[in-house]
Amino acid sequence: MTKKLTPPEILDTKVVAKSRLFQIESLELRFSNGEERTYERMKPSGRNAVMIVPVTENGDLLLVREYAAGTERYELGFPKGLIDLGETALDAANRELKEEIGFGANQLLPLKEVVLAPSYFSSKMTLFLAHDLYPEKLEGDEPEPLDLVRWPVNQAEALLSHIDFGEARSITALLLALKHLSGQ
């Protein structure tokens, strides 16, 4: 039987670093056994995100290749983005598809809500599978046009070993989409 854990008491919270995009918070915590520790995390922004695995009627996955400052190279992954204020995850998924690959989807199936690194971030990303695509383009916020890459679903194993396809969220989304597509 699993013991029910009591979350630690937050004794103090303060911003210790700030940039244009991020704030780092320091949390003074007291655990149920009396131990006290200082943890750091990205200050919660209250905004979540979406990632979409679009599949064409011909059985192709639609991916984008875009520059990633963290790795300082172009990465291959699925369309993704933040949920705007007042927008649902479903609406954000369809908007991001239109902005990044020039297609909307008549069918969006939520696969799972994931967290990138729960020790440091609280933001969640909802992963979707998109079917029944139709052409529609919206202006996005990317600094350059994204490279659209079609990849046959029946060659997804090769995608998993592709050097440019390394983002954990894209790999997770692909594996969940393949599980759904195979009927498991």
Rank of each mutant, 00 (worst) to 15 (best):
K179C: 00
N48A: 03
A156M: 00
L181C: 04
A68M: 04
H162M: 02
N154E: 13
S32N: 09
S170K: 01
G81F: 05
R30G: 05
G104E: 11
F128S: 06
T71K: 11
M42A: 05
E66L: 08
A17S: 13
N94K: 14
G46F: 06
A89M: 03
A49Q: 07
P7G: 06
A168I: 14
R37H: 05
R73I: 08
R73E: 15
E113K: 14
F103H: 14
D12V: 00
E57H: 13
T56M: 13
L176N: 07
E25V: 05
L27Y: 13
L62V: 15
N33G: 08
A49T: 12
K98A: 12
G102W: 07
L159F: 05
L97M: 15
E72H: 12
S45T: 15
G77L: 05
E136A: 13
A173R: 01
L29Y: 12
S182Q: 12
K179L: 07
L11E: 11
K3V: 11
A130M: 04
A68D: 09
P79G: 04
G59S: 07
D91F: 06
K112T: 00
S26W: 07
K80F: 04
G59F: 08
A177P: 00
E100K: 15
S32D: 14
A158G: 02
W151T: 10
I101L: 00
M125E: 06
A173I: 04
A105S: 15
P145S: 09
R30Q: 14
D132K: 15
P135C: 04
A130N: 03
I101Q: 02
L174W: 02
I24D: 00
Y74N: 15
K14S: 05
A93G: 09
P7K: 09
I163A: 13
F22N: 14
G166C: 00
R150E: 14
G46Q: 13
L138N: 08
E157W: 04
L61W: 10
F31N: 03
L82F: 15
Q155E: 14
A117S: 06
L63F: 11
A92W: 07
H131I: 03
E96A: 10
F128N: 04
L97S: 12
Y39P: 00
P143T: 10
K18I: 12
L63M: 12
P7D: 08
W151V: 07
E96W: 07
Q184T: 06
P110G: 08
R65P: 01
V15R: 03
G183Y: 11
G34R: 13
E96K: 14
P44W: 02
